[in-house]
Write a protein that binds this DNA or RNA. Structure first.
Lengths: 238, 238
DNA sequence: TAGATTGTTAATCGATTAACAATC
DNA sequence: TAGATTGTTAATCGATTAACAATC
């Protein structure tokens, strides 16, 4: 691979999504004192195939040695670098309800290179509250925390009906990366990156698979309950 | 498409992951009084292309009318049916810390067909606590809540180091669908379905993209700060 | 040198997209 | 009938996988 500027050569999206998993596994291996790891062993730790792992790493330019494996610390540094984790990223959380509260206190952010620097909410009962050492501020203060210089990630934990409005204010304040927990589609300018976590959706996908397994099991063992025909058990529409 | 048993014909995974979004959009349209919707309009509401939407729906057998569009209520019922949402699914949450607490109180589950029926934790300070109307129980009680008859989804909100052990107990109790919030790979039998939500990972992916945008912007406008060469700004490894 | 393991090639699979014939 | 819109086809794109030559 060319000796190119970091971040210029395209890394496939599917690979990007796995980099955090590799990074975490490498951190654990380093913790355990391992100096070197084979693609086979690292892949096993992450739960993917070794061919996929090697292909993924090849997109980074990679630092393996044939016949030996990868240097655990070297590869860790390489991936951390690609994820922009040499310096911590600032994170602001908007919407300090149930979920926002939990996110504000989530230890996993700090240990993986993120620093929660602001909590925002416009609810009169919430503003001024102290959460995990940070005072909740009104949204009007967004501009004082989000600084044009240092990139800031905005986390949206507001109800669906407020999500677009709050997102617009984040974008106006200069936020170009948004993690959206509200079950709504956000409209943003082309230079803003939005990722979505939809908790109920995850359960619905599990439910789909569970139902499919159940129906298939029922078809393999026809009519275990003779009084209920298989086709009535799921309720066909129309 | 064949008039086949619900759940027998294979629906592609990418399509399954979008069904919850379609369902939610249809619910909003029905709420707004719409009787009929075109693929163009529904796709716009969900933020996908109309060709993709029509292809997705074609996997369900679909209920559109050429020249007219889709019947909002009919399609809603059809998708709800496929997601197994004719009756609510039981959900147990294990690990009532920061995140588990928030999930126990998350309103979005109930409105989308899920019923939280059990909260579990072995922490002496947590057991017995009343959270959102449910008493937190010790893990030993899992068997009394997870009943072989009705399928139950297990939500794992414990620290990474306990995740595998707790997961094993969920599986032993008969849970075959698991939503894992711990940043660990879970080993489960082949008949158990695991989905993972890794909050820090989501931020890391956003950070990767943000860094890539920043590097590219810097390369387009070479050396805006003449004292710092571009290649030093990101810190090449080795 | 012999054994191990990477990085890459090529085949395969699945998902997306545009275009349009079918049909209301 | 004319206009609208679906459902499907075929082309394209991206991701996965297995196999192996390169090389430590």
């Amino acid at each position: 691979m060319d000796e190119d500027e970091v971040g210029t050569v395209d890394v496939p999206e599917a690979t990007v999504a796995r980099l955090p998993q590799y990074l975490r596994a490498l951190a654990e291996l380093a913790e355990a004192g391992l100096r070197t790891v084979s693609s086979e062993a690292l892949a096993e730790a992450v739960g993917v195939g070794s061919a996929k792992l090697r292909k993924d790493l090849s997109h980074l330019g990679s630092y393996g040695t044939r016949g030996v494996g990868y240097d655990v610390n070297g590869l860790h540094r390489q991936i951390a670098d690609r994820l922009g984790q040499t310096t911590p990223w600032n994170v602001v959380i908007v919407g300090i309800g149930n979920l926002g509260h939990a996110l504000a206190g989530y230890g996993g952010f700090a240990t993986r290179g993120f620093r929660v620097v602001g909590l925002f909410d416009d609810g009169p009962h919430v503003v001024g509250e102290l959460v995990n050492g940070l005072r909740v501020r009104p949204l009007a203060d967004l501009g004082t925390v989000v600084r044009p210089g240092e990139p800031t990630i905005g986390v949206l934990a507001v109800p669906a009906e407020h999500a677009q409005g709050v997102c617009d204010r984040l974008v106006a304040a200069g936020v170009t990366s948004v993690l959206n927990f509200a079950p709504t589609v956000l409209r943003v300018p082309a230079d803003v990156d939005v990722r979505k976590v939809d908790l109920a959706s995850e359960l619905q996908i599990l439910a789909f698979h569970a139902q499919r397994r159940a129906v298939r099991a029922a078809l393999r063992t026809p009519l275990p309950n003779p009084s209920v025909p298989v086709s009535d058990r799921v309720g066909e529409v129309v």
